[in-house]
Lab assay of single mutants.
Amino acid sequence: MSIQHFRVALIPFFAAFCLPVFAHPETLVKVKDAEDQLGARVGYIELDLNSGKILESFRPEERFPMMSTFKVLLCGAVLSRVDAGQEQLGRRIHYSQNDLVEYSPVTEKHLTDGMTVRELCSAAITMSDNTAANLLLTTIGGPKELTAFLHNMGDHVTRLDRWEPELNEAIPNDERDTTMPAAMATTLRKLLTGELLTLASRQQLIDWMEADKVAGPLLRSALPAGWFIADKSGASERGSRGIIAALGPDGKPSRIVVIYTTGSQATMDERNRQIAEIGASLIKHW
């Protein structure tokens, strides 16, 4: 067993022997300050990975656009099909120029040879490739089937209704393509630590998230040396920005953090900075 597999395998073990964890309200002060700075709603939740206990939250049951954070859930659904023998990570999918949508930095380079399901999930999570996400959605039956998968997991909140890039419209009070911080955190925890996926698939999912290449300005920018993070960011219209992450010190994840914001007129750089500052406060008061 590799060191990485050993780390994931021990998560349920540590759950039975973990020391108590305590929240620090200073982080919530920073979350509220971020709302003021951005002139927008901010949703935040911090969940103990082992016990599932909510350590701190702000607007945990308000809806926010999922943006590209849905791609982790999508690849979780794909992996569940792999575990059930209904899909193969090595299966090659061919597509055409007509399938390409905006922001497809990986898939646009493989029009001649296609990409495997594994490569598409990697592109969707690590590079947030939109065409990769659409091709993967097709393999499971579309957005409604992803919503059904989540319902079967016990998540009756999170929903995907449209494809890339339309799902990023982020219209106020529109429940399409939205989640709540509490629902997303719970669902992510189930995918990473529960029995829904095999150990190999849980490890694959967290490996893809750990290799995320487009979330550098967010929580990763505040991460001390030696800390672990596996994450997925998202951005969409109407000043929306978000990130879902499993992180912790000593090279292993111990908490789930979900941050969403929407309705801001601030620049992308400012939205990134506010999320990074929330992360810095979280780490300082860990």
Rank of each mutant, 00 (worst) to 15 (best):
E270K: 10
L38S: 05
P25Q: 09
T131A: 10
F6I: 12
V214G: 07
M153K: 04
S57R: 09
T267A: 11
A225D: 14
L38M: 10
K53T: 11
P60V: 09
E277Q: 11
I244Q: 00
D113P: 05
P217Q: 10
P105H: 04
M153N: 09
Q97R: 13
A280T: 09
A132S: 10
M127Q: 11
L89G: 03
I45F: 13
F13V: 11
S80Y: 12
L89S: 04
L135C: 05
I259V: 10
R176A: 06
R241E: 02
K213F: 05
L38F: 09
A266H: 06
D83G: 02
I256V: 10
H24G: 07
A200C: 11
V101G: 04
A16R: 04
K109G: 13
P65A: 06
P143R: 01
Y44M: 06
R7A: 13
Q4H: 12
H24F: 03
K30G: 01
R241V: 04
E270G: 03
N168V: 03
R92E: 07
P143G: 01
S281R: 08
W163E: 06
K213C: 12
P12H: 12
L218T: 02
D48G: 03
L79Y: 00
D99G: 04
Q37K: 15
P224H: 02
P12M: 14
A222M: 08
I171M: 14
Y44L: 06
L192Y: 05
E102V: 14
R241C: 04
G114S: 02
M127R: 08
Y103C: 08
W227C: 01
E164R: 00
S201C: 06
R176G: 03
D269G: 10
K284E: 10
A170D: 14
A124V: 04
Q97P: 15
A15C: 15
E237F: 10
T262K: 10
E164N: 05
D269M: 11
R202G: 06
E237S: 12
T69R: 00
A23G: 15
R220L: 01
R238C: 13
A211W: 03
G154S: 03
T198S: 13
R7V: 08
Q37L: 13
A276V: 09
N98M: 14
L137R: 00
L218F: 02
R220H: 01
S96A: 13
Q265S: 14
M268T: 06
I45V: 15
A266G: 08
L219N: 01
N173V: 07
M127Y: 11
K252G: 06
A215R: 02
R176V: 04
T187S: 13
V29R: 11
K53S: 09
F228R: 02
A245C: 05
L135G: 01
V8E: 10
D174F: 02
M268A: 06
E277S: 07
N173D: 14
P165K: 03
Q86D: 11
S96V: 14
K53M: 15
D161N: 04
N50E: 13
E145D: 08
T147G: 04
D250H: 10
L223G: 01
A200Y: 14
Y103D: 07
E145T: 10
L247M: 08
L55A: 02
D250N: 13
I206C: 09
Q4L: 06
G194H: 08
N272M: 01
P60K: 10
R241F: 04
S221F: 05
I54V: 15
T147M: 05
R176N: 05
F70V: 06
G251Y: 07
L19H: 15
E169T: 15
K213V: 09
P25L: 09
H156N: 13
N134Q: 01
E35Q: 04
S233C: 04
K144S: 15
A84L: 15
G263D: 03
T261S: 11
L47R: 02
T178N: 01
R220G: 01
S68G: 00
P25A: 04
K252I: 14
A235G: 10
P172H: 09
L49R: 01
E87T: 06
T147H: 03
A225I: 11
C121L: 03
K30E: 11
S57W: 10
P253V: 03
F6Y: 09
G226C: 04
A170G: 15
E87M: 08
E62K: 03
F6L: 12
P224Q: 02
S236A: 15
S236Y: 01
R241L: 04
T187D: 11
R81G: 05
R238L: 08
S96D: 15
M66R: 00
M67T: 09
A15W: 15
G216R: 05
H110D: 08
L19E: 12
E56A: 11
A77R: 08
D250R: 09
F228G: 00
L55I: 07
V82D: 02
W208M: 03
I244S: 12
S80C: 10
T267P: 15
